[in-house]
Amino acid sequence: MGWMFESNLPIYLQIAKRLEREIVSGKIERGQPIKSVRDLASEAAVNPNTVQRAMQELENRHLVTVQRGGGRFVTEDEETIKAAGKRLAEEGIHTFAATMKHLGFSKEETLQLIEEEWNYGV
């Protein structure tokens, strides 16, 4: 079985985001090669062209570089990876804050819950 996808977003963006997360979290390490388009397509059970587009997206964000002689590698540049991490965190916080506001929690109550979760949650 391949990867699961949300129905409301283009698949290539979802693949790009998944790889971005793996780069930011260090699961795919800095300077290391990325799997080939064919292998990733097979693993995710998607079209190779879709993976290709996801790769271009990561290249545009400078997270992935194409080496001469072929092959893609995670950037060596720590700042770029940090910036990507910050962007992902901001997205997460934005969604979270919107949910809490929608549920009627104040900023203080929300921070209190975060505090508890951080210390005792799993």
């Binding site: 409301n8 283009p10 698949i11 290539y12």
Partner: peptide, 9 residues
């Protein structure tokens, strides 16, 4: 992907 992008479906 264009369908997903344009219609959110």
């Amino acid at each position: 992907d264009q369908i997903r992008e344009e219609h959110g479906k």
